[in-house]
Amino acid sequence: MTSKTQALSGGFSQPVFESQSVFRMLMDGMAKPGTLCTVDLDVGQPEPLGGAAGAIALTLCDHETSVWLSAGLSQSAVAEWIGFHTGAPIIREKAEAHFAFVEAGATPASFGLFSLGSQEFPDRSTTLVIEVKALGQGPLMTLTGPGIRATQTIAVDGLPDVFMRLWADNRALFPRGVDVILTAGQKFLCLPRTTRLALQ
């Protein structure tokens, strides 16, 4: 398949209902951080974008949301695919991104260049969708914070060590800060900025 046909193929087959069902998983996932969700749809996204990440893009992005892509994604058919299916402008400036998609192994060295919102408008911050090697296996982490009764445990494979420090720094900025959705293939889990993380 050429990259052009790749960019035009896929998408939701029933946009109204499929975007609603993915959104409800995202909403429940944000409300209960760390809950492992599975997207049971094939949206035909080009490599190296994962299936869950593709569905999330289709659900949340449109011409009102600018999207930043990590190097591996922006050099693939992903940019055109997102542009074609959602109408979202793909931008290079991290600070202006509503959403940022990051391929596996490319976790940014800092969240500081993304939009962190302001003290008056902390909602105006980037949501990062970061692909990892696997969810549900790998090192265990304990989650606490709003949405979690006592504690929640997650297993994530493929997050760089630096992530724990980035996340702690992000947490310290509250109410400013980014929100993160970790994806692995068809699976995802949400880490809103309120969640505290600790390695077990």
Binding site: Q20, M27, M30, L60, D62, P122, D123, T127, D179
Partner: peptide, 22 residues
């Protein structure tokens, strides 16, 4: 659908910042 997406994005940010009015 465009309106729903706009509201959905606001809901996700609202959940991430409990009690803050988006």
């Amino acid at each position: 659908e465009q309106t729903k997406r706009m509201i959905r994005r606001a809901i996700l940010k609202a959940i991430a910042i409990p009690g803050y009015q988006v």
